Amino acid sequence: MGMSVIISAATAEDAEQILKLQYLCFQGEAELYGNYRIDPLVQTLDSVRDEVTANLVFVARLGDEVVGSVRGSTDPDGTGEIGKLCVHPRLQGHGLGARLLNAAESALADQRSATRFRLHAGHRSETNLRLYRRAGYAPVGSATGQDGVRLILLEKDLAEQAYVASA
């Protein structure tokens, strides 16, 4: 009998597992860009702890193991910022990323009154870009991260999604 993956709010005790998972998951991105100094690989444990305290952070658990994570916050104009979505490589391709993304969006809308969401993905990260497009995100621009990676900026408006869904 298999266990179910449960999505829940992260706690301070999850910070170390989140950091280790993030380090594992973003190796492929680093290889894709030939850059092992991307933000998720150089983030400190204290920084992850700060994010868990200040932001809406969710984890996917398989038993006691954290197998997925995502962060959500709001910017000064109330837009929900979603970042560092990651799923353990052995569980990718089973909808867990979409479930984590949905958890972050729902919490940002319910707890922080966000009506628009923003995220980014590296320009070569086709798997991630495909997930975001399926979730209703559209490209709105590009930027270069502090690590030198060209990023595609994507946004999703909750009102437009509701209109499309009701049409």
Rank of each mutant, 00 (worst) to 15 (best):
L153Y: 03
S69M: 04
D64E: 13
A54S: 15
G83S: 15
G78K: 05
N55Q: 11
F58Y: 14
D75L: 06
S166K: 13
Y163Q: 15
V59K: 06
R71M: 08
L151P: 10
F26L: 06
G136H: 03
S125C: 11
K156Y: 05
T144A: 11
F26S: 09
E81F: 12
T11D: 09
L101A: 01
G80Q: 04
R49A: 07
A104Q: 02
P139K: 11
I7T: 02
L129Q: 14
L119S: 04
L56Q: 14
H123P: 01
N102H: 11
Y36T: 00
V66E: 00
E51C: 12
E65L: 08
L101E: 01
A15N: 03
Y36R: 11
S47D: 12
F58H: 08
L158E: 13
A143S: 14
N128W: 09
T44A: 06
L158N: 09
E65Y: 05
V66Y: 02
G72D: 09
R116W: 05
V5T: 10
A98Q: 12
Q43L: 05
T11S: 14
E105P: 02
Y23G: 11
F117I: 08
E155G: 05
C86T: 05
D64S: 09
Y23R: 14
S113H: 14
A12V: 01
A165T: 08
V140R: 14
R150M: 06
H120D: 13
L85W: 08
E105K: 15
G63V: 04
V70G: 00
F26V: 06
L56C: 12
R37F: 01
R37L: 02
D75R: 12
Q111R: 12
Q22C: 10
G145R: 04
V164E: 12
Q22M: 14
R37D: 07
A165S: 11
S125H: 15
E81A: 09
G136V: 00
D147P: 10
V59N: 01
G145P: 03
A9Q: 13
I38W: 00
Q92L: 07
V87R: 03
E13D: 09
S113G: 12
D110M: 09
Q146F: 09
S73N: 11
L101N: 02
A159Q: 14
D77R: 07
G93T: 10
S113C: 11
K84A: 11
A30W: 10
D147F: 08
G93H: 07
V59Q: 05
Q146I: 05
